[in-house]
Simulated scan of single mutants.
Amino acid sequence: MNQCTAVVLLPPPDHVIALSIPGHRPEPGHLLCELGEDHEGHENHQDHEDTDHAAMLWEEGGRHGGAVWARWNTERTELVPLPWCTALDSRGEACGLFARHPSGHSWEVTDPTDEAIMRVLAEQHPHLFPERREGGGAG
């Protein structure tokens, strides 16, 4: 499934602004939702967080097994610490999303921009992408 394309503009927290050098105010940053594009289809859940968009901001250094995520919808944006999803793929790689996330696991979510770039590079430099040649796998 493709990655959700929702974007939010996140202003810097007040404490960061307060600590900034005068004349060098931190700029707001854009966040792109990391969930699969179908996560908003979970409207029938009682917990509205299931339909929130989400982007990881940083891992929590002092608390094992979690990260701080920005969660947003049309009404609000908030920063929340969430534990990691414990699911593993067939190679034993961990999901890169938070526990109980809606939609697919991170290995099932494809960034369409990355895929478009890889397709163009594979066409221009086929020797670098043997797995994309005809008969050689995805292509």
Rank of each mutant, 00 (worst) to 15 (best):
D111Y: 13
E43M: 07
H30P: 01
I21N: 10
P83V: 07
P83F: 04
G92E: 12
R63V: 10
A94R: 12
D14Q: 15
G66Y: 04
E93Q: 15
S106Q: 13
E49N: 12
G36M: 01
A94P: 03
V16W: 07
V68S: 03
E108D: 14
I21P: 00
H42F: 04
I21R: 14
E40D: 12
E34H: 07
H45M: 01
L79R: 15
H45W: 08
P102T: 12
R100E: 10
H101S: 00
C85V: 11
T74P: 01
L19Q: 13
D50L: 01
D38T: 15
L79Q: 15
A18T: 14
T110G: 05
D111V: 13
D14I: 09
P12S: 10
T74I: 05
L88F: 01
R71K: 12
V68M: 00
L19I: 02
D52E: 12
Q46C: 02
L19Y: 05
G36Q: 07
E115Y: 08
H101V: 04
S103M: 00
G29Y: 08
R119M: 01
L97D: 00
G66R: 06
T86L: 00
W107H: 13
V16F: 05
G62I: 00
A67I: 08
A94F: 01
D52N: 11
L79H: 15
Q46D: 11
R100N: 13
R119H: 03
H45C: 05
G36H: 07
W84G: 04
D111L: 09
S103V: 03
E115K: 12
W84S: 07
A94I: 03
P112E: 09
P22A: 06
D50A: 07
Q46V: 06
N73K: 09
G104V: 05
M118C: 02
L79N: 14
V109D: 02
I21A: 07
L97W: 03
D114H: 11
P26E: 10
I117L: 00
G62V: 03
L57W: 10
I17Y: 06
T77A: 11
D89L: 04
C95A: 09
E60F: 02
V80R: 13
L19T: 13
S20G: 10
M56H: 09
L82G: 01
G23V: 05
E43P: 02
W58T: 14
A67L: 00
G92L: 05
L88T: 14
C95H: 12
R76A: 08
H53T: 15
G92S: 11
T86Q: 07
E37M: 06
T113R: 14
E49Q: 12
S20C: 09
H53A: 11
N44A: 08
R63D: 10
P28N: 08
P102C: 04
P112K: 11
H15I: 08
A54P: 02
E34N: 06
L32Q: 15
E34V: 08
T74K: 11
N44S: 11
T51L: 00
P112Q: 12
L32C: 10
N73G: 06
R100S: 10
T86S: 06
R63T: 15
